[in-house]
Design a protein around this nucleic acid. Structure first.
Lengths: 128, 128
DNA sequence: TGAAACTTCTACAAGGCGTAGAACATTCAA
DNA sequence: TTGAATGTTCTACGCCTTGTAGAAGTTTCA
């Protein structure tokens, strides 16, 4: 149960972008602003959503273990459980894990990595 | 649109396992046999499915670009478009691709790879 | 204490997936 | 050549996820 919907992903992106915990209202505003801000293929982002919509999504993300909230403060504050990088790396391991022949997969994977990334990998593998 | 359902995955596993193209009927039989054959957590596999069910799944997999069929022969023969390893590696790139900070993700990823895999990666990175 | 702010509950529509019958198409033996 | 057997396509339905939000309940604060 790792895949996210479009809105769920948009919310996670916001939580990952800002380093602080945010309230549902804050996220609602940010989602609305994203319209003119970025010309990027933001998809459905930019809509003026109801706060309850954001809260529902946050609850679902919490159930999925991607988000946690401070229940103490009154406007609950939400934050990502792990960084975007950690989460992505975890996802990659999940994908790889389901393969019987992990090394063969890694071979294909490495085959299509940019040179600078290959360099990064060499360094990382050096001191392990 | 990369994720597969349980039955879809079971079918792909069979197509990836056998090197030859298979008919819907053949796949139906294989899915049925999987019951007692493997004690593994095969999930719902092992059920006696209708052939039309298998055909529907194959059509969907074809639409997703994971399977292709020979329409010439009468019992159409289906086969995976790419190997399981290629497909998995592609999936990994998809996951990685959506990250702004690719190198940071790779760092986390490498951090939790087995030693033998690390060795494999070193070799692979050596001659690029 | 009552209005404002906030959260939870409930719900609905759309789309993906498992599942398969009904109807249409093709093949092959007699 | 024709009809039974085999095969494929169409259509459908129920369940689950996701986007979306109103209604109702809870907390806060002037």
């Amino acid at each position: 149960m790792a895949s996210l919907g479009e809105l769920e992903r948009a919310v996670m992106d916001l939580l990952w972008a800002g380093q602080e915990a945010a309230t549902a209202n804050r996220l609602r505003d940010l989602l609305a602003q994203s319209t003119q801000a970025q010309g990027g293929s933001a998809g459905h982002v930019g809509k003026d959503l109801a706060v309850t919509t954001v809260l529902t999504v946050l609850s679902r993300l919490e159930k999925k273990g991607l988000v946690e909230r401070e229940r103490g403060t009154r406007p609950h504050r939400y934050q990502a459980v792990s960084s975007r990088e950690d989460h992505t790396a975890e996802l990659m391991h999940e994908v790889l894990g389901s393969a019987p022949d992990r090394e063969a997969v890694l071979a294909r994977f490495i085959g299509s990595v940019t040179e600078s990334e290959a360099e990064t990998l060499r360094k990382l593998l050096g001191h392990i």
